[in-house]
Structures are given as structure tokens and as C-alpha cells.
């Protein structure tokens, strides 16, 4: 950072702010790639649940509630990604780190 201080001063703060905001938006988009994992996991759980109901239709209630519980746990990684994306988009923590 110290070596580049003269080149950094060539830009005004608004440009830097816009750059950081743009990068935050890209980062938010990248964070939502975390949605792939829960998608695969929940699909797998739902498929196995359908299989289990097909094999034992009388155990439907237990199978469905166990499946929902598993889906909820699998979902939490996706939710963490969503929370990171929301923080990057709306709280903008990185903008405060600009110091000229």
C-alpha cells in the first residue's frame, strides 16, 4: 500500500468508492455460488425420501419429518453464503476500509 500511495492519490475518493462497491457486488454474486451445495444436498435428501415413501408408504409421516430436518441442516451452508452476500450488498463493510 505504501509504495502505491502516489498512484492512489491520482484517483479521487469517489472513484475508489465506486470500485469497492462494484467489487463488493461481484463478491456477493460469488458468495451465492454456495447455493450449489444445499441444492445438491436437498435434492439428494428429497430423492431418498421419495424412495423411502415408495418402499414403505405407511411410514410416510416419519420419513417426511426426518427429510425436512435433514434438508434444514443441509440448507445452513447456503444460508451462510446468503448472509455474506447480504452483508456485502447492504452493509458495505469494505467501503469504510478506504483510506487515502
Amino acid at each position: 500500500m505504501n509504495g502505491n500511495i502516489s498512484t492512489l492519490n491520482a484517483y479521487d475518493e469517489a472513484t475508489l468508492r465506486a470500485f469497492v462497491l462494484g467489487c463488493s457486488a461481484i463478491g456477493a454474486g460469488l458468495a451465492m455460488i454456495a447455493g450449489i451445495g444445499p441444492g445438491i444436498g436437498q435434492g439428494f435428501a428429497a430423492g431418498k425420501g421419495a424412495e423411502a415413501v415408495g418402499r414403505q408408504p405407511e411410514a410416510r409421516g416419519t420419513v417426511v419429518s426426518t427429510m425436512l430436518l435433514g434438508c434444514a441442516v443441509a440448507e445452513s451452508t447456503g444460508i451462510y453464503g446468503l448472509v455474506i452476500a447480504l452483508i456485502l450488498l447492504f452493509a458495505n463493510p469494505l467501503v469504510g476500509k478506504i483510506n487515502l
Partner: peptide, 16 residues
């Protein structure tokens, strides 16, 4: 933490 973020993320995501 995971318990609260799950509920919060789902509902906030829906409302956004």
C-alpha cells in the same frame, strides 16, 4: 448461530 441464521436468512431472502 446456525439456528438463528437459518430462520433470518430464509425470511429476509424471501422479503428481498
Amino acid at each position: 448461530i446456525s439456528l438463528s441464521f437459518r430462520l433470518f436468512g430464509n425470511i429476509l431472502g424471501g422479503s428481498i
